[in-house]
C-alpha cells in the first residue's frame, strides 16, 4: 500500500473525502485486509484519545488561580481620572454658616438694643462688631422705626485687602 493510499484511508476515517471517493475507498477496504487493518488501527488510536482532556484538572485552587488573572486585569485597566466631587449638603451649609451666623448675631443685637431703650422717647444707637462685619442699629421710638446699618463686608479693611467672594 503506497503512502497516498494510506493518507486516503485516513481521510476516509475523518470524513474528509468527497462522496464518490468515500464509496471507492469503502469498496477497497471491503476487499483488502491490509487496508481494513490499518483503518482499524487508526480508529483505535482515535478512540483512545477521545475524552483524554476531560480528565485533566487545573492543579490550583479557584482563588489562587483567579488572583493572578485579577491582578493582570487591574494592571491593564487605564488609570481613571479623579471624579468631580459630588454635591455635599454639609459643605453647602458650612459655606453658608459664616454669613448666617453674622446675620443672626446682628438680629440678636438689634433685639437687645430694642429692649434696652424700650419706653423712652430717645433715639437708641447700638454698634456691634462681629468678625469682619459691622452693624449699627438706630431705633426711633417716636416713629416706631428700627434701622440697621450694615457695613458687611465691603467697607471694612479685611474686605478691601483680600479677594472677595462675597456678594456685592
Amino acid at each position: 500500500m503506497n503512502y497516498e493510499a494510506q493518507l486516503k484511508l485516513q481521510s476516509f476515517l475523518d470524513g474528509e473525502l468527497p462522496e464518490n471517493d468515500a464509496r471507492e475507498v469503502a469498496a477497497w477496504i471491503a476487499r483488502d485486509k491490509q487496508a481494513a487493518g490499518l483503518l482499524a488501527e487508526l480508529r483505535h488510536t482515535r478512540e483512545a484519545v477521545t475524552g483524554y482532556e476531560e480528565g485533566i484538572r487545573l492543579p490550583e485552587s479557584r482563588e489562587f488561580y483567579w488572583s493572578k488573572i485579577q491582578r493582570e486585569i487591574d494592571r491593564a485597566r487605564p488609570a481613571t481620572a479623579p471624579a468631580a466631587p459630588a454635591f455635599s449638603l454639609w459643605a453647602y451649609l458650612r459655606r453658608l454658616a459664616v454669613p448666617a451666623t453674622a446675620l443672626a448675631l446682628i438680629a440678636i443685637a438689634g433685639l437687645v438694643a430694642n429692649r434696652g431703650v424700650h419706653g423712652g422717647g430717645a433715639v437708641g444707637v447700638t454698634e456691634i462688631s462681629v468678625s469682619d462685619t459691622e452693624a449699627l442699629t438706630y431705633r426711633d421710638f417716636s416713629a416706631d422705626t428700627t434701622l440697621v446699618w450694615l457695613s458687611y463686608p465691603a467697607d471694612n479693611e479685611v474686605a478691601q485687602n483680600t479677594p472677595s467672594d462675597t456678594l456685592p
Binding site: 483524554y52 482532556e53 476531560e54 485533566i56 484538572r57 487545573l58 479557584r62 488561580y65 483567579w66 488573572i69
Partner: peptide, 15 residues
C-alpha cells in the same frame, strides 16, 4: 466564567 471553564482552558494548554 473563569471558574466554569478554567479546567477546559488549562487542559487544552497542557495538551
Amino acid at each position: 466564567l473563569v471558574a466554569r471553564h478554567r479546567d477546559k482552558i488549562y487542559a487544552r494548554a497542557f495538551s
